[in-house]
Computed example of a mutant assay.
Amino acid sequence: MKHGVTQTLYNYWDNLRGARPAPNRSEVDPGEIRGLLGDTFILETNGSRDVRYRLAGTRLCSAHCRELKGRNFLRGWSVKDREALESLIAAITEDAAAAVIGINGHTERGQILQMEMLLVPLNVPGEGRIRVLGSCTPMEKPYWIGLHPILSQSISSLRLVWPDERPYFVDSPASTLNPILPRFTAEGIAMPTPPLPSGAERKVGHLTVYSGGKS
């Protein structure tokens, strides 16, 4: 976490959650992070491939020269980067991870804006889904930001952060459900866990996690 906005938002979220995997959405007080709001956003997940901006700050929208609310978060990435983001979103919403991502935003003129993104989970009791609180902040502020829109983005670095040092599923029995949100079918029956390779602990998106590390 290099940027002050990333560090401040992460610390706010971490203090808010306490000993829980994630804080409730209703506990987030915009007044307490007033100075960060222009760079923050909330994502609503409707499946791994449908992740949309529910709210987006003014500075973030200005960098894209458009309103982001309602737009698909996964739009504008390469296939490889989109798959990586889908796996990150799964780790965040299913296993209470946080993610820090280095991003390059590209304009039609070939200009590149380096940014740092933070993604952390928010629990929404009663809605049956997890939302994602995030920030996306330019590392520098070139003269053209807000004049030439970011049309595509690419990942330059990414890191999963386990706030309590280990994923919640590592020390849990195989039958334990998501610590944030149990997954159910439309009929209300818990979904069966697919078989894993020998020695594996858990699947995170298309990634397989083995004891002693994440791969």
Rank of each mutant, 00 (worst) to 15 (best):
L37T: 10
G38I: 05
T40L: 07
T40F: 05
T40E: 04
F41Y: 13
E44V: 08
N46W: 08
R49E: 13
R49C: 07
R49V: 05
V51P: 01
V51N: 02
V51A: 05
R54Q: 10
R54P: 03
L55M: 11
A56P: 05
A56S: 15
A56R: 00
T58L: 08
T58F: 13
C61G: 14
A63L: 08
A63D: 14
H64V: 05
H64I: 04
H64M: 09
C65I: 11
R66M: 14
E67C: 11
L68G: 09
L68I: 07
K69H: 10
N72H: 10
F73G: 00
F73R: 02
L74H: 05
R75E: 14
R75I: 08
G76A: 09
S78E: 11
V79A: 14
K80I: 15
K80R: 14
D81Y: 07
D81E: 11
R82M: 15
E83H: 13
E83L: 10
E83T: 12
A84E: 15
L85M: 07
L85G: 02
S87N: 15
L88G: 03
I89F: 06
A91N: 02
I92K: 00
T93D: 01
E94S: 08
E94I: 02
E94Y: 04
D95L: 00
D95C: 03
V100Q: 09
I101N: 07
I103Q: 08
I103R: 06
G105P: 04
G105Q: 06
G105M: 04
G105H: 06
Q111D: 15
I112P: 06
L113W: 07
L113P: 01
L113D: 03
Q114G: 11
M115K: 11
M117G: 06
L118R: 05
L118E: 08
L119F: 10
L122M: 05
L122F: 03
L122H: 00
N123M: 05
V124F: 06
G126F: 02
I130S: 01
I130T: 05
R131W: 09
L133E: 01
L133M: 14
G134K: 01
S135R: 06
C136A: 12
